[in-house]
Simulated assay, not measured.
Amino acid sequence: MLSWHEARAACAAVPALPAEDVPLAGADGRVLAEPLVTLTDLPAFPTSSVDGWAGRGEQPWRITGRVLAGYDPEPLAEDGTCVEIATGASVPDGVEAIVRVEDSTVADGHVTGSPRPARDWRDVGEEAAKGEVLIPAGSVVTPGVIGLAAHCGYTTLSVRARVRVAVLVFGDELLTDGLPGAGRVRDALGPQVPAWLDRLGASVEYIHGPVEDTLEAHVSALAAALERADVVCTTGGTMHGPVDHLHPALAELGGSYVVNTVKVRPGFPMLVAAMPGGKYVAGLPGNPQSAIVALMSLVQPLLAGLSGRPVSLPRVVLGAPVPGRGDYTHLALARLGEGGAVPLRHAGSAMLRGLAQADGFAVIPGGETGTPGHEVEFLPFPLLPGESTGGPSS
């Protein structure tokens, strides 16, 4: 049984998926396989920041022409002359000062005016020098990164292939609609696990279940899912009970454990297995909160490793006491607020109410308790663009 941090490190250490070149328009949300490096100085030529007059020598300046954006101008060779210049235009060689339109007076083909104390043009390389690393490999591509890449002259970016994921739901006791009763419960994981995976940046390709509680059905379902995905997430069957067939199914398909149970509460019967062909199976427990603990504990760093992304955890101040769980790491559902991270009620492994209200898990190390005012690691839930922490009120 690995510690929680050891298990996360093992999942994050898997080899990254191959890189591929994609057009800028299709790169949003992907992960850079190579650093974004400037292909030229930025700007590549001295660029006017204003509309005005670019001149040299003593005033008044005689107007000799006009320079617009998009053209390579002739040098300004004669003292006492100037050219009208537009914002974004290349500043001609020989220019000593630029006077803004609003600061100038024009009469009889000549210009007078006072330049501002700071020069009104951008020098070559002012933003970045050629060959400078702007964004490191492993960074998620955002619209801003796409714009910067275009600014540098890129038309494609080298990014990691998207991680394709399948979801298998195990359990004869599960209902896919209607009210629970007569010994059967609604499947609460089949609908939500794909949404978590989507937020974690995976491409959910296949969802199937409930899978019949037989070894033959488990082997067949896993084999079919592994043909479609890089990672298969299963729910339930991670123990060794009479209807828990995941372990023998993995053995029959040639799997070997990367992680097999983790010293964490809730959710310790979780696993990740490496399968032939560079594929993986992540086994999540059947209890709903335990399953999400396993998803965020193991699948999140597994997806990061396959995508070539680094894994790190922020720290937060606890706003209320959090009990320990003996020698096990305790992942406590918590909500973030002005007072820090506050643990939530309704946090049993089979409960979903607290999960629906939480911003993530406060990480209480084994052998410790959480003390108000102390800093702890925090495992945040992934957010949609524009979404903020602070879920529905209780």
Rank of each mutant, 00 (worst) to 15 (best):
G94A: 03
Q300S: 15
A118V: 15
A273K: 00
I146Y: 05
G254M: 00
E127H: 02
P276S: 04
G52R: 00
V124W: 00
P365N: 01
V316F: 02
P392T: 07
A334H: 03
L253K: 07
T261S: 14
V293R: 03
G386A: 01
A137M: 05
V22D: 15
H5I: 15
A16E: 14
P60V: 01
P385A: 04
A195V: 14
L175V: 06
L298S: 06
A137W: 00
Y154W: 07
D244L: 00
V204S: 09
L157S: 12
E375V: 06
L157R: 08
L148V: 00
S297K: 03
G241D: 05
P382S: 03
S312F: 02
D327E: 13
P73D: 04
L271Q: 09
S139K: 03
K263T: 12
V322K: 02
A229C: 01
V159F: 00
P288A: 04
G52N: 04
I207H: 09
L179Q: 13
G26I: 05
H5P: 01
T142R: 09
P285S: 02
P15F: 05
A356T: 13
G305N: 10
T329E: 15
L168R: 00
S220P: 06
V165D: 12
G201A: 03
A9V: 05
V293N: 07
E387Q: 15
V106I: 15
E74H: 10
E96K: 13
S388A: 15
V141Q: 02
L295A: 12
T81L: 06
A69S: 14
A320L: 07
G138K: 01
D213Y: 11
S349W: 00
S312T: 09
F268D: 15
